[in-house]
């Protein structure tokens, strides 16, 4: 090498090195999660209790279930704004099936989930056949599904559904109860709530499909470059439709879980939940440009949102301030995410 081989290593490292950025990015969501837990345990002693853990788990469940659907749709290059309304419609349909048609609860809930799937199918067809932008297509569905839910219930809550309707949302596996000497039951172990189990099982299943299956690979390819995917023989329209169907089914399930917890079906349930779902995906590293995102990231994102809400609540922070904080967290995580892709 000529004379210039030993140059002054100039101010190249003024900012973070690439490797540092990389680490920060990978662990941004997880790190903030750990930080949150630590902070809240210090500020409020009740935060780390088993009971609170359970209630966080339940709160997170609905965000995570919707977030899984949102992730798949966004990775494939779309967006689904309708899930909040669709979950209300699905839950209301399940309740009415029990109350008006006298269907067995499991069947009624399947019907509710099916309604969610149909809403997703319509979204998918409007996007692929009518070629409407996903934002518009699902915005339309958001209004339609909410309108339907209000319409068929006369905008009233459906209650008096019987104890079995509450089983899915309130039951738990491995719940240990002993009847004490005084005749009152004593809970030894609260068990794992069914919704949390469902969420964990579905997260694992969808994560596995995305990582390991041909269809999962196609989802990424379509979101990364739809034209390249089409020219590689991927059935782009079918893949896109499928992502909306999945999102709709998960919204339907979420609706059933939520209404079951309250043992009441509320046509006004789930307003703005789509934004939580999208936020959890984004916090977890999913790119709105498509082609990038993981279920594990989204689940972490859902926990970040759930824990923030819970912890801020326990510290007596107002709901308005909570919104501000969550908004800032979204901006921060996405900014960190983009750090890695600079220069």
């Amino acid at each position: 090498m000529p004379a210039g081989l030993t140059p002054p290593v100039a101010a190249a490292r003024s900012r973070l090195s690439d490797r540092q950025k990389d680490l920060i990015q990978t662990f941004a969501a997880l790190g903030s999660l750990v930080a949150l837990v630590a902070a809240f345990s210090l500020t409020s002693p009740a935060f780390l209790s088993l009971g609170n853990g359970m209630s966080i788990g339940l709160q997170v469940t609905s965000i995570a279930l919707l977030g899984i659907g949102a992730t798949v749709v966004i990775v494939a290059g779309g967006i689904d704004l309708s899930v909040g309304s669709v979950l209300a419609l699905a839950g209301v349909v399940a309740a009415l099936c029990v109350k008006e048609l006298g269907l067995a609860v499991p069947l009624a809930m399947l019907a509710g989930i099916g309604v969610g799937g149909v809403c997703g199918l319509v979204n998918g067809l409007v996007v692929t056949r009518l070629k409407l932008p996903p934002f518009i297509a699902t915005l339309g569905m958001m209004l339609i599904a909410r309108g339907l839910a209000l319409q068929i219930t006369g905008a009233r809550a459906v209650s008096g559904l019987g104890e079995s309707f509450g089983e899915l949302g309130n039951g738990a596996l491995l719940r240990l109860v002993r009847v004490g000497d005084d005749g009152f039951p004593e809970v030894l172990f609260p068990g794992i709530p069914y919704p949390v189990l469902l969420m964990a099982g579905l997260a694992l299943a969808v994560a596995f499909l995305l990582r390991r299956s041909v269809i999962g690979r196609h989802v990424y390819a379509v979101g990364s470059n739809a034209e390249a995917a089409r020219l590689s023989g991927v059935a782009v329209d079918r893949v896109v439709t499928l992502t909306y169907v999945l999102s709709g089914l998960l919204a339907g399930l979420t609706g059933c879980v939520l209404m079951s917890r309250l043992v009441t079906a509320q046509p006004n349930e789930g307003v703005m939940y789509e934004l939580d779902a999208i936020a959890s995906a984004v916090i977890g590293g999913t790119s709105l440009a498509g082609g990038v995102g993981t279920i594990s990231g989204t689940v972490i994102g859902a926990f970040v949102i759930g824990i923030l809400r819970n912890g801020l609540n326990m510290n007596g922070v107002s709901a308005f301030t909570q919104q501000i904080v969550i908004g800032l967290v979204i901006l921060l995580t996405v900014w960190i995410d983009q750090l890695r892709n600079r220069r």
Partner: peptide
């Protein structure tokens, strides 16, 4: 038209022929 640029090298190489490296159930 050619590449899914956000995807890794291996995923791009196999994109047009995933069936050849997947089981009949569609698992890679």
């Amino acid at each position: 038209q050619g590449l899914a640029v956000t995807m890794p090298v291996d995923a791009n190489l196999t994109l047009a022929n995933l069936g050849a490296v997947a089981s009949r159930l569609g698992l890679i």
